[in-house]
């Protein structure tokens, strides 16, 4: 049982691959963080894993079967994807937004019924938004919006959850709220892969870390083992220092004394 990428190569422009032979696996109960500089291929990898892009080389396997062979609805029942930004052109209510997650479980002409409404309520309760059911999505704060999107993914009842920068643009309290909710979901048995630009979030919440550089895997494993200053410097191109005592680093910060201005 896993969602697995094997030797993925993807190029938007022929000859300029943004992913080169990347492999990784997410199993139920995993909370894996994907790190790497802007343009290192994180979002592309996430979209390949979600079946939204077809890699030119390599395969994505869902419990051993190629994702590309699944019908879109079947794929959506197994893999949920939460984008970093969601268009909110029209003022749907939070409940209506979460009900969209029921789409793969409904026939082509179907509409959500009382059972789907119940599932949506449960999903909203899991992320702590049960009080905002009737609110219009554009009136939500950034953190609430992110949680509503996670609730929509939960309403999909998919065993795997892919999150694109779930902690971006959020204040520390909301970052914690979102990531703690996701960690709790992983502990319940969901397989979660999330991209982030914050190594410390991966240290605090993550079970495993995959570090990308220019479309290749630079390191993979336990957060404290991968998130070392040398590897981070190789990934981001600036020096880092580890802060804190104990078996591993407590935090990683850019090193300002080394000619960084």
């Amino acid at each position: 049982m896993s969602l697995e990428a094997r030797g993925l190569t993807y190029a938007y422009v022929p000859g300029k691959p943004v992913l080169q032979g990347v492999s990784l696996a997410v199993a139920p109960g995993d909370f894996v963080f994907l790190l790497g500089a802007n343009g290192s291929g994180k979002t592309t990898l996430l979209e390949c894993l979600g079946g939204l892009r077809l890699p030119q080389e390599g395969t994505v396997l869902l419990d051993g079967r190629p994702v590309a062979q699944l019908a879109p609805r079947e794929r959506a029942k197994r893999i949920a994807y939460v984008p970093q930004f969601a268009e909110a052109v029209f003022a749907f209510t939070v409940e209506e937004l979460v009900l969209f997650g029921r789409a793969p479980h409904l026939g082509p002409w179907g509409r959500p019924g009382p059972r789907d409404r119940e599932k949506a309520r449960q999903a909203l309760a899991l992320v702590g938004l049960e009080g905002l059911v009737e609110r219009a999505v554009p009136t939500l704060s950034g953190g609430e919006k992110r949680l509503a999107l996670i609730a929509r993914a939960l309403a999909q009842e998919a065993p795997y959850l892919l999150l694109d920068e779930p902690d971006a643009h959020l204040d520390p309290a909301h970052q914690h709220r979102v990531l703690a909710v996701v960690r709790a979901l992983a502990r319940e048995g969901l397989g979660v892969l999330a991209t982030t630009h914050n190594p410390n979030a991966a240290l605090v919440y993550g079970g495993r870390v995959v570090l990308l550089r220019a479309g290749r895997t630079l390191g993979a494993g336990a957060p404290a083992a991968v998130l070392r200053p040398e590897l981070l410097e190789a990934a981001y191109g600036i020096p880092f220092r580890a802060v804190g005592d104990g078996p591993g680093p407590q935090a990683l910060l850019p090193r300002l004394d080394e000619g960084l201005t």
């Binding site: 979209e47 984008p83 749907f92 969209f100 997650g101 999909q156």
Partner: peptide
Amino acid sequence: NLLTLSEAEAQALGL
């Protein structure tokens, strides 16, 4: 309603 979402989101929902 689902078509008002971005293409990637609607696709991810199996549409």
